[in-house]
Design a protein around this nucleic acid. Structure first.
Lengths: 206, 206
DNA sequence: AATATACAATACTTGCCAGTATCTTATTAT
DNA sequence: ATAATAAGATACTGGCAAGTATTGTATATT
């Protein structure tokens, strides 16, 4: 048997992600990616059979990264509402502060319009995120920390807002302020039925 | 003096919009646009000095169209809450049902990441939309139809949600259902402080 | 009618970049 | 050691599309 390079696909996907997330899919050529991975274009074609496949690999890499981050966070926070808030903070960070993630996902949206495989990849990823949030919200609701009738539709609206916030971050840099961050998280929690002050005992007032 | 063709720039911008909104900026070449405008590529360069300028013109065309539609709607509905609801319905229609608008704006977002002129064009447009909504919400609030403290931040969150809904529409076709439409409008109104039922007299209950 | 000039058509150049063909090198099983 | 083969380097091809040079044509002023 000859030598093998099992790390190369990942290494190339990482390098591709970095480049794509900085300059966009259309503005990056395979030579650039190759240079950043410390190889030449020919080597890329040993592991991926087209630029498109490399793009898909970069997407998968991004999805994995997000999952790892989120589940690490969830495992470390016991209280349901705290956990929800932490995940929201992470999501906002991912979308707003971390420019690479923001650019990369925005590019994915545009590419999804034309390529069904990119689209279904994102759809699958997004489903896991949605279910994750529905779980978090339901748990917090059962703990009496949220006043919400339909967690599913609330989560859908909240996730829409996050995506929209991501887009706005491109045009409104002030969104990156730490203070603004907290306001955004607060606004998202509000969509999820969090009422400021003594949380769950608002209903009893009337 | 020679002949003149004052309608050509608009005609080309319209044709460009149509093509870009169908296939995306990167997948449309100037020959295609020329054919759809009933001219040849050479003619385009009489009116625009690059593809990029034509893209900007297509953007401006889109912005104008939206403004015309919205202001036509506003003028025809007297009640503040009704007016707000109608504008929201139009916005959802624009973002979700009207695929061309959805595709075109998504492409703008991606292009904005790299091109400052595209970005500032959108930012300017978005500002007018934001101010419009703030006006609508404030009017409805003063009329006692909305329970909202800070119209500005509520509108920001609501507009984020709309943008996010637009993105989701690419991945979740069921959003196009008429029923779902109304749910979305209802959810957006909720963000703006609309409490279902007898609207403005909720406070008095406690 | 003549002519100046903007509009438009045609044909061409140029550069970029995905993908390929071919050659080299390193590794491992025998 | 050596044959077999995967990984990688280098150099090339081919196609696409933006932009340009040139030529043609219609119109408005004189």
């Amino acid at each position: 048997m000859p030598r093998t390079a099992p790390h190369m696909p990942l290494k190339l996907a990482e390098a591709a992600f970095e480049q794509f997330a900085t300059e966009g899919f259309a503005n990056v050529n395979l030579d650039q990616i190759a240079v950043h991975a410390g190889v030449t274009k020919g080597a890329i074609y040993c592991h991926y059979k087209s630029k498109h496949e490399l793009i898909l690999a970069a997407c998968m890499h991004y999805y994995r990264l997000y999952q790892v981050k989120v589940h690490g966070l969830i495992a470390s926070v016991p209280d349901p509402l705290d956990r929800l808030r932490k995940v929201l903070e992470l999501s906002i960070y991912n979308c707003v502060i971390d420019k690479k993630n923001r650019v990369f996902t925005t590019e994915i949206f545009a590419l999804s319009l034309q390529h069904i495989d990119v689209r279904s990849g994102w759809a699958q990823f997004y489903d896991t995120v949605r279910e994750l949030f529905i779980g978090l919200v339901t748990t917090a609701k059962l703990a009496g920390q949220l006043q919400i009738e339909d967690p599913r539709s609330a989560v859908d609206m909240m996730l829409s807002a996050i995506e929209g916030i991501k887009l706005r971050a491109t045009f409104e840099p002030h969104i990156s302020d730490p203070v603004e961050q907290q306001n955004l998280v607060q606004g998202l929690l509000k969509i999820l039925g969090y009422t400021e002050g003594s949380s769950a005992d608002v209903m009893q007032k009337s």
